[in-house]
Amino acid sequence: MARIEVNHLKYRYPHTENLALDGVSFQIEPGEFIGIIGKNGSGKSTLCQAFTGLIPNFYRGAYGGNVKIGEINVRDVEVDELCQKVGIVFQNPFNQITGSKLTVYDEIAFGLENLGLSRKEMIRRIDDALEQLDITRFRDRNPFDLSGGQMQRMAIASIIAMNPEIIILDEPTSQLDPQGSEEVFKAVQRLSQKGITIIMVEHKMEKIAAYSDRVMLLDEGKMIDFDTPQKIFSRDDLLEHGVLPPAFTRIGRGLDRKNAATGEYPVTLKEAKEALEGMAV
């Protein structure tokens, strides 16, 4: 499995003045679930696209440093070569539908046809992806007739079928209703348990705190911190970086209840419950 290594990554979009990414360095181990947080315009989406090689190969622009997926330097390979290692799912489920397929089954096949897989292999992978995302019962539906949550899971299935080791999700639930979001989070968690590396950008801090092994905080293209959710959300300067900590952390902080062993504030409902249960009701 591939390790991700980012060294001094700098990037500026064409026709702009400011750096979208400004000297970012870190490593991600195989199988980790990483949450990326930060205010709008902090470079979250840009970083996502840098993992897939869309930056700089699709967008062009000024690029410095490097992003390595295992032994591969993403800058040196074509996007379609990398897509079998790194998959990406975007915010708007509608715009990820190819529009050239009439059923969910055929839609998922799109990427596999492009890779030139045998029919037998395609069917094996599509059946497996439908199963993993729990959408087998929609296989013969028109992709445009699905609900938002189902559509987004189909988009993830289309990527999973290409067998990537790493999946990037750029605000995958921001356009969905609570039920749709929950379906997507559950599906992503299952993938994570199977050992796929997950990198997710999300504004719902409670979810990031609940699912991530580590959280990266970005601001103005710079990486401010990259640590466990407890450490990140216990920082005193989060609001200055435009991030509101999870409700559970705010309560822990307001009542000054920390985890006795680690000295960190709670970040999930479970942790908050434990931290508060000692207090008189």
């Binding site: 897939t52 869309l54 074509e78 996007v79 379609d80 070569e81 897509c83 079998q84 998959g87 990406i88 190819t98 089954y105 055929d106 096949a109 799109f110 990427g111 596999l112 046809e113 492009n114 890779l115 030139g116 897989l117 045998s118 029919r119 395609m122 069917i123 599509i126 289309s158 990527i159 290409m162």
Partner: peptide
Amino acid sequence: VRGFNAKTKKTFL
């Protein structure tokens, strides 16, 4: 990102 521009010869489901 779904390999639309891949140079491999396409196959069909």
